[in-house]
Design a protein around this nucleic acid. Structure first.
Lengths: 307, 307
DNA sequence: TTTCATCGCTTAATCGATTAAGCAAAGCTG
DNA sequence: CAGCTTTGCTTAATCGATTAAGCGATGAAA
């Protein structure tokens, strides 16, 4: 009642001030529960990730939390534990808790069903449900182009899991660039980790991975095989995880602008919640390549093509 | 009202069943807002971390979410961005949202003020406010003892930030074991990263770090200096981050049982919220050392003491 | 000066689940 | 069989913020 002061209604400035002061004195805290009941708005967004151990999770959660907070929302998390059914259950749990909308990073290869609840899907541009995401294919292109520019012409593409659309898109981008100008082979680590020494002996001078974690493994294998990085082998990872700057040589990597993605997702949700016009979705955020010490100009083997 | 069915009151089994069925038919979803208003319980726990980019965060958040969900709570996250004032603000935000209690991992060197709100503090046994945590000193002891058992007698202890009580406790544990039996030097990376090659030349054969990330850096430096791990140098990290098994050689590390910590924290909170007796706090969860490929028996220098 | 519009504050209805109180019917005891 | 307890369903008050309606007083226009 006293809250007629909160902007609505016809109230004198003096009265508003008086109420405000008294409220402070008493330490008045409006009950979110009552407000939610009356307005039908909880002021809370749900955040669903397929697997909180996803390397991107910390940064993304942090960014979503910051974006949501500055838009006046709270963030309720729900882990879907890598399980598709759990993902559905997690969404349902959030709905029951009365969230106003949800931000979701879908489980690989999944089209989450979100009925009648504002949602922002963070995935990849090739997903028709995608609301906002990094341009993973473009990221793959950047990584590939960087190796090309350094003179590499025999390249290993190393993916983690072919069920991941994000990884497939990254690799498609890489292949798109390499296809016309360089030899390349594509391997998924789920089929077994390839023998780096063999490949290097066969002429490979560059490795493009879909994750820093895979890149780290390659680095280690190369080390144990006596292959020098970056002199004999250049490596590029993805996501700029904390380890990228901790490892020696430091890891070249393609990073997502997670802050911007979170910002756009939350803004979009906010519009949906308020029934405002919203850019129909499909926003794409560029990725940025950071070259560090794991990449260098290729030494020209006899196997290479003319530079 | 129909919810008299929910266990309370005097109701016939038949009536309860009838209501239940009808509720399912209509797709009845009780309003959390209304329930919260009436009962004064939101069914939501807040979770505050000093910095969501903390390497431990993903696992901990996941575990807290799982424990909370199975106890019927939702989890509202709040990032305090490494800032002490933000930590206070985050707690206040959660309170305003009406959380029933909060789980907090305090900012380094901070005693968070939580007035009249059930709280579970996850920190380290040496913190008087601590509710539940790993036995960091014991973890440090385990790591140190492992190197001793392998015959190492000249050891570098490498901490990240002396402001962190957790890291100090780990190191105190290490020193406690090494003190009587081995030579050791303590260095904080915030004072500059030490020259591994120099130290190895000076006789150091083992490195104990307070984090896998630091261990990774040591591994890389050793590699670049031509020092063989684990033949010439053994390394042990902390926290068993994903990188620990991705790097070659795989990293020996001391891990926290995050699941158990989360479980205990949530259980404790649940008791507090319901005014039940609660074990006054200070629960300690053991850590487990996992030996992998980054540790091996010491080669005996002439500088060493008799084995 | 009379009348009507406007302004500013006060009152009351509302959101939906909870829970105590109310009340009728059935069961029990003496 | 009367009186009393127990059982089971129904009714209504309550939580606290929101918001529309109500209502007295002031000011403007005719």
């Amino acid at each position: 009642m006293s809250n007629a002061l909160s902007g609505k209604g016809r109230i004198s400035a003096e009265m508003a001030e008086r109420v405000r002061r008294r409220a402070d004195e008493v330490g008045f805290r409006p009950s979110q529960a009552a407000r939610a009941l009356k307005t039908g708005r909880s002021g809370i967004l749900g955040f669903v990730m397929p697997d909180l151990s996803n390397p991107l999770f910390p940064k993304l959660a942090q960014s979503v939390e910051i974006a949501a907070t500055s838009a006046g929302y709270g963030v309720l998390i729900a882990d879907s534990r890598g399980d598709v059914d759990e993902q559905t259950a997690a969404i349902e749990r959030l709905r029951q808790r009365g969230v106003d909308g949800i931000v979701i990073v879908p489980h690989r290869g999944t089209r989450p069903k979100i009925q009648s609840l504002p949602a922002a899907v963070i995935h990849t541009p090739s997903d028709p449900l995608n609301t906002v995401s990094s341009d993973h294919a473009e990221g793959g292109r950047q990584a590939a182009q960087a190796l090309i520019d350094l003179g590499h012409r025999d390249i290993l593409i190393l993916g983690g899991d072919r069920a991941s659309e994000v990884q497939r898109d990254r690799i498609d981008g890489m292949v798109g660039v390499l296809g016309p100008v360089a030899r390349h082979r594509k391997v998924w680590t789920t089929d077994g980790f390839p023998d780096i020494a063999d490949l290097a002996a066969a002429g490979v001078t560059g490795v493009l991975t879909t994750s820093d974690l895979i890149a780290l493994r390659v680095l280690g294998d190369a080390y144990q095989a006596g292959i020098k990085v970056p002199d004999d082998l250049s490596i590029i990872g993805f996501d700029d995880m904390p380890l990228a700057t901790a490892v020696r040589p430091t890891l070249s990597t393609v990073a997502q602008d997670v802050g911007q993605i979170a910002e756009k997702a939350v803004t979009h949700l906010h519009s949906l919640i308020n029934n405002e016009q919203s850019n129909a979705g499909g926003m794409v955020v560029p990725m940025t390549l950071t070259l560090r010490a794991s990449t260098a100009a290729a030494r020209h083997h006899q196997t290479g093509e003319p530079s």
